[in-house]
């Protein structure tokens, strides 16, 4: 059970909230307390739009326990338009159609259920761009 973690990460999981360094302008996702570029601790919240391109992708056949029942599923590295790369699952796309360079956008989907009686946990996944 990791409900506190999901509560703590809700702004990241639902709204892609990272940070912008007030001294050098560097954008971070996940949020960091120290700017990796200039080491400043002056930050403001920054919300990424959630559009990007596929940097790499894989389809997982042998999954960790918690994800075993949905295998095979696809996970990738996505380069967001703002210049930050994140890790996320893909959705609404067959594995064989995934390609490096493909344009994708963020949607909210179920990530996993925390046991049969636990809560259903939601967060970002990415799908091929369909909206304009």
């Amino acid at each position: 059970m990791d409900i506190p973690r999901y509560w703590r990460l809700k702004d990241q999981r639902y709204r892609l909230q990272g940070k912008k360094c007030l001294d050098c302008g560097n954008l971070s996702f996940p949020p960091r307390l120290v700017c990796p570029k200039c080491k400043s601790r002056n930050y403001e919240k920054y919300f990424f739009i959630g559009k990007g391109t596929v940097y790499s992708h894989t389809t997982i056949y042998q999954a960790p326990d918690r994800f075993d029942h949905i295998a095979p599923y696809s996970v990738g590295l996505i380069d967001l338009e703002e210049g930050v790369r994140i890790t996320a699952q893909f959705t609404d796309v067959p594995a064989e159609e995934l390609k490096i360079g493909m344009k994708v956008e963020m949607v909210i989907r179920q990530i996993y259920e925390d046991g049969p009686k636990g809560p259903i946990l939601y967060g970002y996944k990415f799908r091929p761009v369909i909206s304009v």
Binding site: R5, L9, Q12, P30, Y55, S56, H57, T58, I60, Q62, A63, P64, F67, I70, Y73, V75, G76, L77, I86, T87, A88, Q89, I100, I111, Y112, G123
Partner: peptide, 20 residues
């Protein structure tokens, strides 16, 4: 918080490198 809970396995991380 940001890799494993997305469903990424350790093999998966290496697979992302190999694909690229």
């Amino acid at each position: 918080d940001y890799e494993t809970t997305m469903g990424l396995s350790f093999v998966g991380i290496n697979a992302l490198l190999m694909r690229r």
